[in-house]
Amino acid sequence: MHIVEQHYLGLELKHPSRVSTLRELETFVSKPLLEALGDDDPAAKQVLIKGIWHSLVSPTIENLLFTESAQEVIRNIKVEEAFDLEILRVLPAKEILFFNFLLGKNRVIKCTWNNDFLIVIDITRHEYNTGIQCESAVAYLGGGNKNFTHALRGAIQCLIFYKLTEPELLHVAAGKKQGTRKQGHYNATPYPITIVDSTWNKYIVRTEGFSVSGHFRLQRYGTGNAKLKLVWIKPYQKHGYVRLPKAETI
């Protein structure tokens, strides 16, 4: 994988030349959130604006680049009306966290977690680089929010995968290479990149008959079952067998 700054929207937006674009995005995202706060808490408004701007421009936020294999797994995590937002309490309640999820070259989801609030900025680049589209969302864990927009659903899927599983992480420093020439990664950008991969979906059912597709299950573990993690149940055959892809059995 050859990572070039101009090829990934989530990295390109960090360039100083895109400041005007980011200012427009900040206004677009902040306006509805500020209106929801009303005029009662001006200090909270300032904190909100600073947090949104930080999530858009800060070079210190970790760049998490999801591989195609990881994205396939993420798409299979169901976030629907019955989904319980309380699952996100695996994130620390008294910390402010920022996430920069790079989902391919033309989409980036920026998340801010702050005291049970999740603020999401989902930015997509149109085909042929004709412009960008932005969708924002906010969820409060104590508010019973069931309006899972495209942006909020995508952010939650990424957070569940990243925090409740054990993904394969490869840290590639700016301007450095990792791995071999054929299978390695070269980070040609001025930003450190963490490549997030998964092998969960590399099992294939190769038999006839009634098969059960792979799926996820939230499983509690630890003392008193106090901890929570997402586990992958491999595809299996109820009246047959499962074998690995041919490439792995040779």
Rank of each mutant, 00 (worst) to 15 (best):
N145V: 15
L34F: 02
M1H: 13
L218R: 13
H215N: 14
H15C: 03
R243P: 00
T165S: 03
L22P: 13
L159R: 11
T60A: 08
K50V: 02
D122G: 07
E26V: 00
K182W: 07
L65W: 00
F98A: 10
I193Y: 00
H185D: 11
V57P: 10
N114I: 05
N145D: 14
W113P: 15
L9P: 03
I193F: 00
K229S: 10
A43D: 06
T180Q: 04
R206N: 15
E26Y: 01
G214N: 13
L25P: 00
A70N: 06
I87L: 11
A70D: 06
P190R: 00
E168T: 10
N63T: 04
V231F: 00
A43L: 09
Q46N: 07
I195P: 08
H2P: 12
G175K: 04
I233N: 15
S69Y: 01
P235T: 04
G10K: 05
L159G: 09
C158Y: 09
I160H: 01
E208C: 13
A174M: 05
F210H: 14
H15G: 01
F148T: 02
E86S: 09
L64R: 01
A44V: 01
A226P: 00
T194P: 00
T189G: 05
R107M: 07
N114W: 10
F210Q: 13
K163Y: 08
V172R: 10
A43Q: 08
A44M: 05
G179I: 01
N115H: 04
D39P: 01
C158E: 10
I123H: 04
H126W: 03
V231E: 15
Y221D: 06
P235E: 08
K182I: 06
A43Y: 01
A139E: 12
Q183S: 03
L33R: 08
S213T: 14
N145W: 08
Y236N: 13
K78V: 15
C134K: 12
V231S: 13
A155F: 05
G184I: 08
R18K: 14
Q219H: 07
P16S: 13
I160E: 14
E95Y: 02
Y241P: 11
N201E: 11
K229C: 10
E208I: 09
N225G: 12
D122R: 09
S213F: 09
Q157N: 09
I52S: 08
P245V: 02
G143K: 15
